[in-house]
Design a protein around this nucleic acid. Structure first.
Lengths: 204, 204
DNA sequence: ACAAACATACCGACCGGTCGGTATAGTGGC
DNA sequence: GCCACTATACCGACCGGTCGGTATGTTTGT
């Protein structure tokens, strides 16, 4: 049979499947996401998917570890690294990514990490633990940056870094959730501004 | 055949199915929720379910309208009615319901309204619109209470009620989402305290 | 150098099972 | 007797996952 197969490239195939899975789960959730649609979107087959991933669940874990995790670091953790003024850094991140997700229209799909977190946490502890690790790193990074800011004198001395970090992350969940639910960009922006005003009140 | 003869009571049957559906969707989501499990839990059959509801989607709508809606009113809207001091009323609601949901263990399942909102908003506009109506009422009630508080002199004059209301509701989503994700009651309580401290800063 | 032998990458038909939904028969209350 | 109500058997669609098989490297013996 004269099959015109694509030239072999296992890594690229794996990445195509992984990105298709991310998009499918982002749109339809993990439970609602279909492996058939994923392989179709990736231009591959079930055989290829099950060659690279042991099943739907390991595929979901790989999406968290290899796609969503790095995305979180890039968006929310990297800007805090060695920031003299953590409050401004957090404000800038909120304003920038709310703006970007509104511009791209992605805000109607919410936050990929939060989507998976809300769907899977009560159902599958392996998912929950993986996701919790990411959120914990996030909260710890915010708290550490605030504590450093208190040392440097850019953050009010009587704030509790852990408490503020818990609300910063919770607010991100809620704001992206608000955008996804309402599909109202202005409302999402309003909630973001409210966070920025609250953070402003924490300056030294 | 010796059937255990339940007395016929259509309204009670409908309510049993409705409450079983609420519990099933609360635990497994709408897409992951199974009609077979619902009728089993309700002690009924598919025939009874499809007699009282035209299908899964109308059943989901009824859960929102007849169960979740009243729950929202009772928890978050009623305490604001004619409150002289809206900030204290909101703080009390956060502290009370975080405490109740931790005590009951329900915090690991998140907020029923937010769960449905996050799952269904991008998938089904009929769901989204229904849920959005509830959230809009909530935000409007908070904003109105704050505006009234400004009139009475219990709220700082230079706050934007709409903005604060957007963050109050977003924070509720995020805090219940944090509890569901982390399954860490202390962390959820911490985030709640952070909201209360923020609200404190808005007093006149 | 070259082919046999093996490992990897991929294909797509097919599996059992569950899903939401339907058709129809039986039953109790006005 | 009628009809709202409930029960049961059943449907096609789709699910995640499996499997036999094939095409494409890579290694190895001579």
């Amino acid at each position: 049979m004269a099959q015109d197969r694509l030239p072999r490239d296992p890594d690229a195939t794996r990445q195509r499947i992984l990105h298709a899975a991310f998009a499918e789960f982002y749109r339809n959730g993990y439970q609602g996401g279909s492996l058939n649609r994923i392989v179709q979107e990736a231009g591959g087959t079930k055989g290829a998917l099950f060659h690279h991933f042991a099943g739907k669940e390991p595929l979901g874990h790989a999406v968290v570890d290899e796609i969503i995790g790095p995305l979180l670091v890039q968006r929310w953790l990297a800007p805090l690294d060695g920031a003299d003024d953590p409050i401004s850094a957090i404000q800038q991140a909120f304003r920038r990514f709310i703006g970007e997700d509104i511009a791209s229209g992605h805000f109607t799909l919410g936050c990929p990490l939060n989507n998976l977190a809300q769907e899977m946490s009560p159902l599958d502890d392996a998912f929950r633990t993986r996701i919790e690790g990411l959120y914990r790193r996030w909260r710890e990074a915010v708290a550490a940056a605030l504590a450093a800011g208190m040392e440097r004198g850019t953050v009010r001395p009587n704030v509790a870094p852990d408490e503020v970090a818990a609300l910063v992350v919770a607010a991100q969940m809620g704001i992206w959730g608000t955008g996804k639910q309402s599909q109202d960009a202005a409302l999402m922006g309003q909630a973001g501004e409210a966070v920025c005003h609250w953070l402003e009140s924490l300056r030294a």
